[in-house]
Write a protein that binds this DNA or RNA. Structure first.
Lengths: 344, 344
DNA sequence: CTGAAAGCGCTTACAG
DNA sequence: CTGAAAGCGCTTACAG
């Protein structure tokens, strides 16, 4: 490799005095090449340090062997894990990942979609931003005959492949657990209701209360408490009520639950005896706070693998079904000290 | 969009009865097109829901506007943050990221490199796996005239662009801090010495001890303690010595430091009065353990931005310098309760 | 089993 | 300002 130019199949063909088409066939391990020439070609390719140009190959073949992934934030545990899972499964099939982050902005999400369409990806995997309420850009993906898989935060009304958590059920079980531990006034920290996952978590909360004939109290349900700071703020508000809650379900995230715990600790309120706390996501830190925090595991890496494998299955399965498949993964309630009154 | 085929510039050209080359020029905002025709073309492109085929464009232009990133694990806080930073800065320049994870395996790392060369990426950003001691695959990147930027875990002897932390200095300061807090027997949990960053952290430790005329004791330096479990195991070993350490510097990671803390707590050893603990990386959880853990912040998101911007600068700066640039980011010691004897 | 030719969808000298 | 033509590096019918 002295020249500025990369070795191409033409260089190999020239050196061996054969047709480029034969080189291509040999490199693709076609059976329509004599074993001896194939060996010769492979050896020469090695010698010349040949690397195939996937751009050219993909352009010609009309596919890119590339999956585009759009998430709100790459560096958020749940999404990083999902991406790691997708990468792992895709890699095994010879597929590459192009990653974009929307930063929770609708405008950037639209731009990401356009970029990925330009890049000719075979499939787009997306978890929508909190701002996204218009789905034209997602429809546009379908119009370009690119497979679309939504996960976790999905647009329900759009008929696409979906991989989700049964988050309503998980939420129901979490609240049920709190009730079983003897908590009577359970508050809910909600996420933005524009996202279906947060609507479902609220619904699970409501269903559990109804099931046990516990009255639903508006002042115990606070919106938009999905960061540590907002969770802390909401907690201060809740605990200063004339009739404060004896448990708080931070349905948005463990970060929010952490905010709750910190405020409670600062106010010298005993967890779990005076206040029960349940989070969502099973972040690493929930295990090591004192007390440790009850939460819900989403099996994020598995979710990523499931997403990739769903695509590969669908690709081979050409009989297009009327309603695209939805795979629901059952999350798991992890009970820890922050809600275990009975263990005290 | 009824047909299976995507709209191309030929479709637009045909509809408008002009040459494809003019369409291309208009779409690329060339000044060599009449304003009125440009407007017409743009409008028609919109109508036909045209998306340009980047594969074709990039093939023709001989660049891909794509940066390949190889990290040991995508879902590790530090790397996820670096990637987020790279993505952010790249996106602003119209570049895309192809992400691979080596899973700490040399073989997979080599495959990742080959894939990225095939994909014609313009630049490869890599933090090598713990197994990597042969750098032929990295040299191969350079042979293909692809820009190579190493970060954090770098092969020192390879002359490439590098973005690193001044980890020796950070380590030195951490140990210095421990000494200033009155700790006399400071143990070191080392990472695999095949990686330069762990060699440097050890060197920082040694230098700090020498500076203060503290004897270096072999039994206080334990290799390969870079997970929580290994950190815990090493701690048990250290604390059962006839003459145990009064501080442990988990130079490998905060996870290791967490292992130390958990063992100490279980053994009823008071932190920081009986045992000082310092970690590395400033993981989120270090702030919320009890006591909170002293650690070192690496400014990971900024590191990612620095990496991307270094590439863009080099690209525009065609005067190739003899020795490629190395950017060193100074990490910051975050002192917390786990080492603050004076604060007690 | 092998080769000549066309084409994937663009861009870019070149000519006018 | 516009068009005709060549070419980026491959793959794949087609013919032999």
């Amino acid at each position: 490799m002295k020249s500025k130019k990369r070795t191409t199949i033409y260089d190999i063909a020239e050196k061996l005095n054969i047709a480029p088409s034969s080189v291509s066939r040999a490199l693709n391990n076609s059976s329509y090449v004599k074993e001896s020439t194939k060996k010769l070609i492979l050896q020469t390719a090695e010698e010349l340090n040949y690397k195939m140009n996937s751009l050219a190959s993909n352009l010609r073949k009309g596919q890119s062997k590339t999956i585009g992934v759009i998430v709100p934030r790459i560096n958020q545990n749940f999404f990083a894990n999902v991406i790691a899972g997708i990468e792992d499964a895709s890699y095994k099939q010879g597929y590459n990942l192009i990653i974009c982050q929307s930063n929770e902005l609708y405008e950037k999400e639209v731009q990401c979609v356009n970029t990925l369409i330009n890049q000719n990806v075979d499939c787009i995997v997306i978890s929508i931003s909190v701002e996204t309420i218009n789905y034209q850009h997602l429809k546009n993906i379908l119009d370009h005959h690119i497979e679309l898989i939504q996960f976790d935060r999905v647009a329900d009304e759009l008929e696409t492949l979906k991989v989700i958590n049964d988050t309503l059920q998980a939420s129901y079980e979490a609240v049920n657990h709190l009730i079983n531990q003897g908590y009577k006034r359970i508050a809910l920290l909600e996420g933005p209701q524009s996202l279906n996952i947060f609507r479902q978590r609220k619904e699970g909360y409501l269903q559990a209360l109804k099931k046990h004939n516990i009255p639903i109290i508006d002042e115990l349900m606070l919106e938009n408490a999905w960061t540590k700071e907002l969770g802390a703020q909401a907690t201060r508000q809740l605990l200063s009520l004339p009739n404060p809650p004896d448990a708080i379900f931070a349905s948005t995230s463990d970060f929010s639950a952490l905010g709750v715990l910190e405020v409670a600790t600062a106010m010298n309120i005993k967890v779990p005896s005076q206040l029960g706390i349940c989070g969502y996501s099973n972040e690493d830190f929930t295990e090591i706070t004192s007390p440790s925090i009850t939460t819900i595991d989403q099996f994020s890496v598995d979710m990523g693998k499931t997403i990739a494998n769903l695509y590969f299955e669908e690709m081979n399965n050409s009989n297009v079904s009327a309603t695209p498949k939805t795979i629901s993964i059952k999350p798991k309630l992890i009970t820890r000290s922050s809600t275990q009154r009975s263990a005290e």
